[in-house]
Nucleic acid binder design. Structure first.
Lengths: 205, 205
DNA sequence: TATCAGACAGACCGTTCTGTCTCTTTTGTC
DNA sequence: GACAAAAGAGACAGAACGGTCTGTCTGATA
């Protein structure tokens, strides 16, 4: 997921050694969950990948479900740092920044370890009447859409909230298409539609 | 999934009693897989839901994986029959038919048993480097996009193939948004973008 | 009535699952 | 070097997994 190797220091707890184990577990679980699916990966596989003891997993996360949530929170944080960082960087006009969205996604899709959106995949393989994962996903998307809406407002677009939701639809659609086809070109389809949405004449047709 | 109760008669095999068991298993597995996720549902749960013997499952499908594929094939067929049937019905202008897409999706999203797209969810919870499920998904989408592209061509739109792919992106995005938020209104966002794409002035902004 | 195919019921097998436990080794600090 | 805390290694329990097998019942055919 184009993860930056931020040696995260959560302010919440513990010694540096404990954090290191926690970090290794999250990283290992993230790799395996994203590629193979959460339910298809057992805790034994996670601790083998992380090189830790099983007790360390349960000491840090309480249960596999706790680990899953921690992975999603961490992945979401890392992804937003990368994406929003690159999106908002510099002092280009807001409209120009909006046009960065799909080239950025294309870079993500081109990563050999791109396996779709961990949040979407997690929701898809769990009970859909359970609100927990869906709420985590909504919270993640809300942060992203808020930044996009701010850009849309700054660009003077009418109904910036609505534009952000429309772009969100395109983003999700591109993620799915890229996951299924393994073709990063799905981002270009989104780009052409976003040009249409943002008022530039479409270059495609 | 708004499934019509077509008492399917596959031309391939067997007595009517055998088909009935096969049908019950597919229906039961479909319900459980869609709601809870494939890997979260065991074969014991499937046979309990279907009211069949475990031997009947393995006689008809060989393995759980065989059942999964049969479920996807059947779900895809039923969904396309419903969706394309309603999309192409009557002799309205092609452009008008294209505008049916998202109201149709809204009806699907409003079903209490809407749990997202079974294909997308299946891909998400299995090994992404395994091509089997991804190819099934691509085949399913290809049929749909071909019908949409034909409509786009009939409507005289330039680059109908491209329009179909763009609409496909919107469809997938709407499905994901509806699954995560459980709000059928995700379809309306798609509708507003499709108006933009099809050349009508957007009513939204 | 005898037969036979198909389905149900469920015991059973080996494996794998999550989660707990004990014991040993490492590590950081005085 | 001594000592306490953390972490590794892995046995273990109980449940659930996918899959196989043996029987019993039923309903149609002859």
């Amino acid at each position: 997921m184009l993860k930056r190797k931020t040696e995260l220091k959560t302010p919440t707890s513990g010694t540096s050694a404990e954090l290191s184990v926690r970090y290794r577990l999250i990283e290992a679980a993230s790799r395996l969950f994203c590629r193979y699916g959460i339910n298809a990966v057992g805790v034994d596989a996670v601790i083998a990948e992380a090189g830790t003891a099983k007790a360390s997993l349960y000491k840090n996360f309480g249960s596999k479900e706790g680990l899953v949530e921690a992975v999603l929170v961490h992945e979401g944080q890392a992804w937003r740092e990368w994406f929003l960082g690159a999106l908002l960087e510099g002092d280009a006009p807001a409209r120009e920044k909006l046009h960065r969205i799909f080239p950025l996604l294309r870079a993500w899709f081109s990563d050999e370890r791109f396996y779709g959106c961990p949040f979407i995949n997690a929701v898809g393989e769990h009970d859909k009447d359970d609100a927990r994962l869906r709420e985590l996903t909504i919270a993640h998307k809300k942060v992203i859409l808020a930044s996009i809406a701010a850009l849309a407002a700054e660009a003077g677009l009418p109904a910036p909230e609505n534009v952000a939701h429309q772009l969100g639809l395109l983003i999700d659609g591109a993620i799915i298409a890229a996951m299924v086809t393994r073709d990063p070109g799905a981002a270009d389809l989104g780009a052409s539609m976003s040009r249409l949405l943002l008022g530039e004449p479409a270059a495609v047709h």
